[in-house]
């Protein structure tokens, strides 16, 4: 493997002003299975592809509830995700305790981003090896954020992270302008279409390998009583959503002109995972 002089720890800038250890941590995110997030004017949803290590193993959890109004999907090192999500929960509780107010989502995401930055500047640490998609609802409506180990957080209309996420991004970039007016069912369908793009050739989305996290009023197909708060749908309850998916070609052509799919990036940096 290629090695260079400036990549052995995170307190060293390369002559170009780059931080190689931080860039490698972004690769760790791409080792994780994909997650997709998108948002309408009423809802925010995250969808995750779960992996299992074998026939006898269960599928790895992809989503965590932080508070009633915030949930995350992760890609990368699960243990790092647990550290950060515990921190987020503490922040959320702190806000309830001190101000009697659900923590504003942007501040919660900025808090973990600022925390992650420290790990890019001090000797003897490594940057976190996990990326988040954070959805939440607060005073200013539904939101979707991406958190990355470089210590940044950005707000998006739609985003994907993890293995082969570029393919999902291509789908999202093609359709994102429609998301804002979608109802929940259509929003989830778009999400599933995007998530499907990250699958390997012979794989498909099933009720076992797919998780859906939702914030916003319940869809008609959801169990009565669910709604508004963050909830994770897994197993049987998502079969209806899976069935509503359109075949691949048709899904891409959701747009008026079924133009050639947007060009893939010149260098495909995504890591191919064997499952």
């Amino acid at each position: 493997m290629f090695r260079n002089t400036y990549d052995s720890d995170n307190t060293v800038f390369s002559p170009q002003g780059r931080l190689h250890q931080v860039e490698y941590s972004l690769e760790a995110v791409k080792q994780g299975s994909a997650a997709v997030g998108l948002r309408s004017k009423t809802h925010a949803v995250i969808l995750g592809l779960k992996r299992s290590t074998g026939e006898l193993a269960s599928y790895q959890q992809k989503m965590y509830r932080i508070d009633d109004h915030v949930g995350i999907a992760i890609a990368g090192l699960t243990s790092d995700a647990r550290v950060l999500s515990n921190f987020m929960r503490q922040q959320a509780m702190g806000s309830k305790m001190v101000f009697n107010r659900p923590v504003p989502v942007n501040r919660l995401v900025s808090a973990i981003a600022d925390k992650a930055q420290v790990n890019t500047q001090e000797y003897g640490r490594r940057p976190y090896g996990v990326g988040f998609l954070v959805i939440g609802h607060d005073h200013t409506g539904p939101h979707l954020y991406e958190f990355s180990p470089s210590g940044t957080s950005f707000e998006y209309y739609a985003m994907s992270i993890g293995a082969r996420s570029q393919s999902a991004k291509t789908y999202l970039e093609k359709h994102y302008e429609k998301f804002v007016d979608c109802d929940l069912t259509d929003l989830i369908r778009h999400g599933l279409h995007a998530l499907r793009e990250t699958l390997q050739q012979d794989k498909e989305l099933t009720i076992n390998n797919t998780s859906i996290g939702i914030i916003g009023p319940a869809a008609s197909s959801e169990a009565p009583g669910s709604g508004e708060s963050f909830r994770i749908l897994e197993g049987e309850p998502i079969s209806g959503f899976l069935q509503s998916m359109l075949p691949k070609e048709e899904a891409m052509g959701f747009a008026p002109a079924p133009a050639a799919p947007a060009a893939a990036p010149a260098s495909d940096q995504d890591v191919q995972m064997s499952e």
Partner: peptide, 11 residues
């Protein structure tokens, strides 16, 4: 410069 460093400076 680095966005995350900029935030740290602001804080």
């Amino acid at each position: 410069g680095l966005v995350a460093d900029g935030r740290q400076l602001a804080n």
